[in-house]
Amino acid sequence: MTGGGERGRAVLVERPGVHRLVPAGRPEPGPGEARVAVYAAGVCASDHEVYAGTRATGYVRYPVVPGHEWSGMVEAVGDGVDPALVGRKAVGEGFRACLVCDRCREGATSLCAGGYDETGFTRPGAFADTLLLPARLLHLLPDGADLRSAALLEPAAVVAAAVSAGGPRSGERIAVVGAGTLGLLAVQLLAAASPAELLVVDPRAERAGRALSMGATEARDPADTGGLHGRYDLVVEIAGAPTTAHDSCLLARRGGRVVLAGLPGPGARGLDPVLLTCGQLTVRTVFGAPSAAWARAVRAFAAGLLAPAALITHELPLEGFAEAVALVGGGDPEVGKVLLRP
């Protein structure tokens, strides 16, 4: 165990549009807790929402230190935690599940009925030099793991949950709708299932093209998919655009499976109940990632089935928080994953 006298820094969003880089202590972990020295933290669209003030009521509590995608090294642990964790590379879950409700007891920790509570939104996050969290949320990495790449394991865990919900089987025709960070991670995981075809749909040609280097067999613009309706055994929608959930169901064959993992905004087009019923489609939805999906993502990363480093395009210090948020929210297709490096 180490002391908490050293000083650090953190990005504090006091309210929408207002942030400061503030001094932050290195707190002593309490019972069951671990303190992590943050190596890298990913900036995503939800962090942009926190700063812009557009995140849904109840899903953020100001003032807050954002940052829910991170990697680092365990530097101290509290009572009741194995001291052998100190010095280990790790990532960690964001949801602070209650572990006692019916959903948690069945292993669906991302459906916890105890109320929403997540690192970087209602608890201090990883846009800081150090992060304090329950040690039970840690997932340890191999000693030789690349911590820069590992900062993307939070979105990879969401993708692992979506892929697991879809149940891909070798030889199937599979489509991924959306070629952002999540979509490209989904391509990597789905390619490992040996599909006969792996289509990626995205209007951004450069993004869709990158999927071809990650295991996709074809990339198309959404406007050019009409001839592919009813073709795919499994469709994983991970874009969250207004029409992508509806259009993904059109791509699925009769009796096919659709997983909706993109988070649409207000006004999104609904699903066609006639198509769902007559086509006997199975539709699953995913929000966040339970512990089991985290474990699958970490195993896939350790085995080399996930290579997130190729998605990183920008790395900035904590002082560059405002620039990082602007990059994420700017809509430039050349901007991939943006990291903050304490």
Rank of each mutant, 00 (worst) to 15 (best):
G5E: 15
A10C: 01
V13L: 13
R20P: 01
G25D: 13
E33A: 08
V38R: 08
G58P: 06
G72M: 00
V81D: 06
V81C: 04
K89V: 04
K89C: 03
A97E: 13
T122C: 01
T122Q: 08
L131K: 00
P134T: 05
P142K: 12
L147S: 02
R148Q: 10
S149W: 04
P155S: 08
A165Q: 05
R169Q: 15
E172N: 11
E172A: 10
A175T: 05
A175N: 00
L185E: 01
L185F: 12
E197M: 02
L198C: 09
R204P: 07
G209P: 05
G215S: 08
A216S: 12
T225M: 11
L228Y: 09
R231C: 13
Y232R: 12
V235D: 09
A241L: 14
A241H: 11
S248Y: 08
C249F: 06
L250S: 12
R254L: 14
G255T: 06
V258H: 02
L263A: 07
L263N: 09
P266K: 10
L275E: 09
L281Y: 03
L281Q: 12
T282G: 13
V298Q: 03
P308L: 10
A309Q: 13
L311P: 00
E315T: 14
E315N: 12
P317L: 05
L318A: 03
A324T: 09
G331P: 09
E334H: 15
L339C: 11
